[in-house]
Design a protein around this nucleic acid. Sequence first.
DNA 1: TTGTATGCGTTATCAC
DNA 2: GTGATAACGCATACAA
Lengths: 334, 334
Amino acid sequence: MRSTIKDVSAIAGVSMKTVSRVLNKERYVSATTRLRVERAVAELNFKPSVAARILAGKRSYQIALIYDNHSPHYIHQIQTGVWARCIEEGVRLLAQPSDVASPHLAREIGGLIDQTQVDGVILSSPVTDAPGALEELERRGIPYVRISPGTEYERSSSVSMDDVQAADDMTSHLIALGHRRIGFVIGHANHTASDLRLFGYRRALDRAGVSFEPKYVRPGAFDFASGEAAADILLDLALPPTAIFASNDDMAAGVLTVAHRRGLSLPRDLSVAGFDDTALASQLWPPLTTVRQPTRELAYAAASLLFGAEGEVVHRRLPHELVLRASTAAPKKI
Amino acid sequence: MRSTIKDVSAIAGVSMKTVSRVLNKERYVSATTRLRVERAVAELNFKPSVAARILAGKRSYQIALIYDNHSPHYIHQIQTGVWARCIEEGVRLLAQPSDVASPHLAREIGGLIDQTQVDGVILSSPVTDAPGALEELERRGIPYVRISPGTEYERSSSVSMDDVQAADDMTSHLIALGHRRIGFVIGHANHTASDLRLFGYRRALDRAGVSFEPKYVRPGAFDFASGEAAADILLDLALPPTAIFASNDDMAAGVLTVAHRRGLSLPRDLSVAGFDDTALASQLWPPLTTVRQPTRELAYAAASLLFGAEGEVVHRRLPHELVLRASTAAPKKI
DNA sequence: TTGTATGCGTTATCAC
DNA sequence: GTGATAACGCATACAA
């Protein structure tokens, strides 16, 4: 059957508490006692029951990752990054899909915490901006870190890339190539990154003295279809853009497809650029210029913050002009 | 803050044991009592502590999903499908990445089970075919279901699509279009589906009396780059194929890119077909013909088997000639 | 440096 | 049908 601390203590000839001390690497245990206990543990191949630990103790050695993003690649990057850090920390990760639009979001998050007793939570965009969710976490006083929040940056520790700067960089790049009529496809309205990218686009235009034309800006939803639709409208203009910058790569792929359908030669007739959120576009079509999104790195950094890393501001320029920022706002750590 | 069964019982005006009965759907609870308890549970948004359940009872109401697949979309489909069924069952899902190539795979799976006391496990390809993993699960007598196993179909309950038939169908379709020189890009060697698809391709050729030419078959690795490489070699042949059938869509996308790079007009100069494993290819390029892979449905079915669904053989033809099979080999259910 | 008593929140046992 | 009470295996507070 399964051995317990009681069994170990019997063999070692000490109390249960002493065994517990050894297991938890507490101080105040004599070397000889420790040795006796360790030998007994080895003899029984004893493994402490995690369930009992959670029930009796304060920590569960588990954290939850809550997400609601319809891009499989984004989810994968987030999971992989957080996962990697959790492995290092010896902590179990519970991945939790959710629905930001649901009126029960807060209740579900509360339920998750009640059920699993997780020590901390990582929220990825767009759950990062669900007020009910944040309130629920704060009510319970549980540490949490947000990945790419769109609002209230100071409300918690968080990590994010500098979307404004990245969009500005890309737009400036297109301007430097000689483009003056630059189309822009906005991202999904739920994500604040969409606004930031649009702002960066506009900022670059302003700085370069290129006039901002509303007709060159089209709404999108971060999916292929909306990229197609936007491209069709932009390319039907009397004076169509010579470059189109999409707020993510699924939409950029849509733009590319339309360009191909119309027999345009890229990049001669049209330059297409995009945020490579899902690592898709840069792969599928060489003429596509992309801003790489460091999702995995962000996720890893988020977990680090949760585990107590110091929240310094990190500016790190990756190959495609990316900026990663990590900031600690709340003192709550695991 | 956190509510317990005690709180619920106080509100409902019954004993803790009765609350427990309702929560566990036991018999011998009057309808009125059940209703009162359910109302109290809802009022408190009560969620039982998993840790306490494990400690006191036999079940943990958790299952684990173990995967090692480098396609984010595949993982996402698998997670989503299993997740949906778990929600219905009121069971928590632990998603566990792993490394089939690791010598510690079995030990890690064992550790996961010890720690979390999961009631059952779902294995997705290619972990389905890791002998050490299966042995570990069987040694512990824990129920498990495999999704798309490549070997020993009778060893456990499993679900899978009929890859042979699907590849046969697609190849037959190409032959019906008049193609006689049909290129084929094999999938990753780790996945038995690769062999099955190749077999289906060959079976269709044989039946149609089209000679099998080894030079038209190229190895691949389920990724974009290997699709590109294969297409380059195939199209450089003295007598190049008029159609290329890739074993998944990432590779098909690679083929398409090469075709475009060479200025081929699709589908006039070349027909490109592929298994749409990641739901990518059919979206990106209209002339691509695809076999849809019902990953999500398979995952859902796998969870159903784990939860005790009868293992009937289901042949279900979806739009793109897909066949789903579910079979129960072992009596072990949760 | 070591031990004792108590409680965590649930299920299992057995009585009513 | 329903309820009281004892486990489950560990950590915690407090003694010694």
